[in-house]
Amino acid sequence: MVQGTDRARYTVLPLLSLTGILVLWEICGRMGFLNPLFFPVPSRIIASGISMLLDGEMQENLSVTLFRVFAGFLLGTIPGILLGLFMGASERTRLLLDPVVAALYPIPKLAIFPLLMIIFGIGETSRIAAVAIGCFFLVLINSMAGVRNISRVYFEVAENYGASQWQLLTRIILPASLPLIFTGIRLALGTSLIVVVGVEFVSANYGIGAMIWNSWETFEIEKLYVGIFLCALLGLLFTVVLKKAEERITPWFGHQVFPDQE
């Protein structure tokens, strides 16, 4: 049970470090320790962000980026989970496909972006495909590990109590591998931010990446920081939302999900 003081501790302390850094930054800037050409103070960055919010520039870029992230995330994650579960459960499939996955996974997803532009043309499709591929392998590898880490005793119980293949999948394999599937999803969301910004640097007119790149070219340093702040905020938001979802969906995690096998 979370006590009042506990709740305060869990929400106040993390916020304290963040605001502390911003306040320190502001003070150092105002006292002239930081060159405003490179390190404008947070208050000016926030002011710049607000004016971008008011003229709609921020929403425009943010919505484009979010669309790419979520479209790519869904397109990559869903097949990644399915294939990962399948490879985890079927040794034959795993032996067949594991080398392919092992060879493709370490390629930086930005490295294949030019290829994607050749295949899909310069447009939304190639950008979303890059994000999707980035998510796909992370989720696949973690889902597969999730299945392979399931304690053997759960399979024995299922077999002893007469589970069919379908029941085995839906009642044992899927829920038991959820904690690692979540790990994959968390990594995939982080990666999708990296990939989308990289892709927008080189091939987009709108989006947070494009906004950062344009600010560098026109040397609007505060705008550039707004872009970085937005990335940080998005990352933070993803983490918090996922953590909440995880606590709801897999409340048992950390309580002998993967007990030591004898």
């Binding site: 304690s151 005793v153 759960y154 024995e156 119980v157 009642r171 044992i172 829920p175 038991a176 959820l178 897999t250 048992w252 309580h255 002998q256 999900v257 007990p259 004898e262």
Partner: peptide
């Protein structure tokens, strides 16, 4: 089963 046979989910 010995233990751990109860499904945590």
């Amino acid at each position: 089963f010995q233990e751990h046979g109860v499904f945590p989910w």
